[in-house]
Nucleic acid binder design. Sequence first.
DNA 1: TTTTCTATCTTAACGTATTAAATTTATGAG
DNA 2: CTCATAAATTTAATACGTTAAGATAGAAAA
Lengths: 139, 139
Amino acid sequence: MNEEKLRFYKSLGLKLTPQRLAILEYLENNRSHPSAEDIYNALKPRFPSMSFATVYNTMEVLVKKGLVKELSVESTRKRFDPFTHPHHHFFCKSCKKVIDVGTIKNNIKIPEELKDCELSEYQIIFFGLCPECKSKSKQ
Amino acid sequence: MNEEKLRFYKSLGLKLTPQRLAILEYLENNRSHPSAEDIYNALKPRFPSMSFATVYNTMEVLVKKGLVKELSVESTRKRFDPFTHPHHHFFCKSCKKVIDVGTIKNNIKIPEELKDCELSEYQIIFFGLCPECKSKSKQ
DNA sequence: TTTTCTATCTTAACGTATTAAATTTATGAG
DNA sequence: CTCATAAATTTAATACGTTAAGATAGAAAA
């Protein structure tokens, strides 16, 4: 990771521990949608003493800083999205894979019902079977 | 609950036990978005022996039959929606309340990325603070 | 009514997320 | 560079939501 990146993370008020740097590195240019366990497993080899608490703590900080988004595609566990540009998602009900979907052309109008709410964002989630699971289910 | 409703539920192949009838009755004309616990608490007074397993089992059946939808607004617990007409949702990050939003005028085009997927539905979820939590946060 | 079959209940286990306390570490001031 | 401090990590325990298995009860069918 280069100097500029390091300065950037520091400028956010983040203490740069080896574990955090490893998590940041893992997330950089990562277009998957890892669960806490995915992150934990990925870093375990390099940091055998690493705990889930560290993963959750770090991810909470990163979400607050806007460096990562939290997905609500599953109702049993958190999924994180390191790609923060506006986009949407598909969720495969069978294999739990998430597929990125570009922004939807027709821009959504803010519904009348929400005129007194403070809106921060919206997500569109498509549900179904990914190509692999689709063909498996037809056998 | 009237005869017609009973016949309808039976026609779906549902065995009509008192607990199920109570859950169905609770859901009828219910425009909230209960969690399993909400349902459990609502029925506990009438059915002190009722267990969570029964709630989950029944809801699973109802979701399969299409009488209830499962929402993915929270990543730590399930929320159910007994109102199955097409519509979308707002989720308050603070009090976890869900607000219904009518269908969005511009119909969403199926994204190119998903052309090989088998799509079953999509959800649009707005996130932010509901009017109450918004005013509280400004004090 | 008797039999069969399914739903329910209880209990326990599971996966995931969160918390508290004690220890260790990064950082900035001196 | 050393030290003091605040912050992060570790460990362990705990909370929460969900699911599974076996025993029981109850509804439907004959």
